[in-house]
């Protein structure tokens, strides 16, 4: 019997779903084993029967909460897809501004019609079984997780920092080039793609289970960053973690 998959998205850039759509050839092969019963539209009716729900986007409105709970009820396995769903993601930047102000910035005068709440990862509302991290997600990792779930296996997601993959990729460390990097506290799995492409890691995959943030801060300071710079760096993706402390 084919496994039934569903994709849902809440507040996010939909970059992750675009990424999923981006590998048609692989999806076609995978479709021999799965039925995709829902893509995008989070229906509140329970007619859908799916086993694995991939949820993208963070929760930024009251009205999204019951929808997410419904999904959790229906699905055997809930997978958070992308930085927004996993961590709150870039959407959490708004958490550092008063809510009213956010509304004004985004919607201007229409703001009073929206019920925006602090952006939060889906795990703050419902239990999440697995995470496909990243902004956007890495296609290989998405396939790896999906294959594992179809085989009834817990996907092996790295719990070591990006530095491992960065070194394996043979990169020169950005710190050696006079720049800074969040790789040492960020969960690997992206093959250090940003560094390999000449940029630095800004932490889109979120922290490893037990990051040594004190040591990282010290290193960043030693390389010329102020505390404020550091907080900003951490906030881009990991804002929810910080404000929820």
């Amino acid at each position: 019997m084919k496994a039934k998959l569903a994709f849902f998205d809440f507040t996010g850039c939909e970059g992750c779903q675009l990424e999923v759509l981006n590998f048609e050839t692989e999806l076609v092969e995978l479709l021999n084993h799965v039925d995709i019963v829902n893509f995008r539209e989070a229906k509140t009716e329970s007619e859908d029967n799916y086993e694995i729900a991939f949820v993208e986007g963070s929760i930024t409105r009251e009205s999204e909460i019951p929808k997410l709970k419904k999904i959790r009820q229906q699905a055997k396995i809930v997978v958070a897809l992308g930085a927004c769903a996993c961590l709150g993601g870039v959407n959490c930047l708004k958490n550092f501004r008063p809510m009213k102000e956010n509304l004004r910035i985004v919607y201007g005068d229409a703001a009073k019609y929206y019920d925006t709440i602090p952006a939060r990862p889906i795990s703050s509302i419902v239990p999440v079984d697995y995470y496909v991290h990243g902004c956007p997600i890495d296609k290989k990792e998405f396939l790896k997780v999906t294959k594992a779930l179809l085989l009834g296996k817990r996907p092996e997601i790295p719990n070591y920092p990006v530095c491992v993959e960065c070194k394996l990729a043979g990169n020169v460390c950005t710190f050696d080039k006079g720049e800074t990097c969040l790789g040492p506290v960020t969960r690997a799995g992206c093959n250090a793609i940003c560094i390999s492409n000449g940029r630095h890691c800004w932490g889109c995959r979120g922290p490893v289970d037990d990051p040594n943030t004190n040591s990282e801060k010290e290193i960043l300071q030693k390389h010329g960053l102020t505390v404020e710079d550091i907080l900003n760096q951490f906030r881009i993706f990991n804002g929810y973690l910080e404000v929820s402390k």
């Binding site: 070591y160 920092p161 530095c163 394996l168 040492p184 506290v185 037990d210 040594n212 990282e216």
Partner: peptide, 10 residues
Amino acid sequence: KCLSCGSCIV
């Protein structure tokens, strides 16, 4: 101070 980053072993 160790970041458990594995750079040293890689």
